[in-house]
């Protein structure tokens, strides 16, 4: 599952497959952190109470 660990197979299919998985996981982590940091900064800057128009 992880690169360079004993079960890792170095072939193109493996790179495409696991590459996609890690891209998705990293994207999700980045989005969550981005939102959390923005929310935290909003609170710090006292902007958190704005009336946002949600879907």
């Amino acid at each position: 599952m992880f690169p360079f660990i004993f079960d890792w197979v170095s072939d193109p299919v493996h790179y495409v497959f696991m590459g996609s998985v890690y891209t998705v996981l990293i994207s999700l982590v980045i989005i969550l952190h981005y939102c959390a940091i923005r929310a935290f900064l909003d609170v710090i800057c006292k902007k958190g109470k704005g009336d946002h128009n949600h879907d």
């Binding site: 994207s27 989005i31 923005r38 909003d42």
Partner: peptide, 25 residues
């Protein structure tokens, strides 16, 4: 709670990206 309110708002903003990842998967 201000933080959660802001978090919800920003998650809504990021929803198209999240939905796109969901569609891909």
């Amino acid at each position: 709670i201000g933080f959660f309110h802001g978090m919800a708002h920003h998650l809504h903003e990021a929803m198209p990206t999240i939905a796109a990842i969901g569609v891909f998967l």
